[in-house]
C-alpha cells in the first residue's frame, strides 16, 4: 500500500532507511524542524539546518522516489533561549519560499514554561502573518495533558486561524478529543515506549473515526521506528479493517493536509490520489 509518513526526522536516519521506506510503499515524508539532540549556538546553525531540510534531504529522498516536504521553526526545547529564538524566527522567512516547505513546525511546548509559551505565540503569529499551515508538538509524558491544554488555550487567542490547517501532534487517549473537538488535525505518533503503539492507534481510529486524523513514526535519532506507519497498516489489517479506510489514514489524510499549503505539489510518483478518488 502506498503511504505517507507525515512526521519523520530523516536528517537523523541513514540512507538505507530511505530505501527500506520506499520498499514498504512510502511515497512521501514530511520533516518538521526539531531538536537535534544538542542546543545550537547561533541562528546561522539553524540556517544550515534549514538548508539541510529544504535542499539536501529532498535530493536524498528523490533518489528513492520519495517526495520530501519540510516544516520550519525553532523547536520548544531550544525556545527556552528567547533571544536566540527571536533571531531564528527572523531568519525563517528566508526559507519559506523553498518549494518543499509546508509551513511552520514543529512548534509547541516541552516543559510548559513561560519562555516556551512566549516563543510559541510568536511563531503562531509568524504563521498567521505568512498564511502558513502549522504543525504543533505536544509534550512527552506527565507534561502532555497540561501542555496540550495550554496550547489549545493559546491558539484560541487567534480566532481567525483556520483550524483545518493546524495539526496537534503526538496525541494520546487523554488529549485527542480536545484537539479534534476544536477542529484541528490530530497526529498519533507510534513510538516504542512513549506516545502511541500501533494497537492503541488502531483503537483511536475505531473510537474517533478517520477525519482529521494522522499517523506518523516521528522517527529520529532516539529509540524510534521509521517503519512504524507500515506497522500500523499491518495492525489495522489484522483487525479486518477495509483497505480503503486504512489508505485514507496513511495516504489521503496526510496529502489532504499538505494540500492546504499553497506551495504543495503532489508526490511525483503517484500524482494526486485525492483527485482520482473524487472522480472515480
Amino acid at each position: 500500500m502506498n503511504y505517507v509518513d507525515p512526521h519523520i526526522h530523516m536528517v537523523s536516519r541513514v540512507t538505507d532507511d530511505y530505501e527500506a521506506l520506499a520498499r514498504m510503499g512510502c511515497v512521501a515524508v514530511s520533516e518538521p524542524a526539531f531538536w537535534a539532540g544538542f542546543d545550537r549556538r547561533s541562528a546561522d546553525g539553524f540556517r544550515d539546518y534549514f538548508r539541510q531540510i529544504t535542499e539536501v534531504e529532498p535530493r536524498r529522498a528523490a533518489g528513492y522516489g520519495i517526495a520530501h516536504y519540510s516544516w520550519l521553526c525553532i523547536n520548544a526545547k531550544e525556545a527556552e533561549d528567547v533571544k536566540l529564538a527571536r533571531e531564528v524566527i527572523a531568519a525563517i522567512p528566508e526559507f519559506l519560499s523553498a518549494s518543499n516547505v509546508l509551513g511552520i513546525g514543529e512548534i509547541g511546548l516541552n516543559k510548559n514554561t513561560r519562555n516556551e509559551a512566549t516563543v510559541f505565540l510568536e511563531q503562531v503569529e509568524l504563521a498567521v502573518r505568512h498564511n502558513e499551515t502549522i504543525l504543533i508538538h505536544t509534550p512527552h509524558l506527565a507534561d502532555k495533558l497540561r501542555g496540550t491544554r495550554m496550547i489549545l488555550d493559546m491558539l484560541a487567542d487567534f480566532p481567525a486561524l483556520d483550524r483545518g490547517r493546524v495539526v496537534i501532534d503526538h496525541v494520546e487517549e487523554h488529549t485527542i478529543r480536545p484537539a479534534l473537538d476544536a477542529g484541528y488535525w490530530a497526529g498519533m505518533t507510534l513510538y516504542p515506549v512513549t506516545k502511541c503503539s500501533p494497537e492503541r492507534a488502531c483503537d483511536l481510529v475505531e473510537r474517533y473515526g478517520t477525519e482529521r486524523l494522522l499517523v506518523n513514526s516521528a522517527g529520529d535519532w532516539g529509540p524510534s521506528r521509521p517503519a512504524a506507519v507500515p506497522d500500523f497498516i499491518v495492525a489495522m489489517r489484522a483487525r479486518g479493517h477495509a483497505e480503503e479506510l486504512i489508505e485514507r489514514m496513511v495516504l489521503h489524510n496526510p496529502l489532504e493536509l499538505f494540500s492546504r499549503c499553497r506551495r504543495y505539489v503532489p508526490p511525483p510518483r503517484i500524482g494526486n490520489p485525492l483527485q482520482r478518488t473524487t472522480s472515480s
Binding site: 516543559k111 516556551e116 509559551a117 507534561d143 495533558l145 491544554r149 495550554m150 488555550d153
Partner: peptide, 17 residues
Amino acid sequence: SDAYEPAWRQTGGPELF
C-alpha cells in the same frame, strides 16, 4: 499527568508549570 489549571494565565503564568 500533571494537573491542568484552566486559569493558568491568570494565576501567574506557565513558569509555574
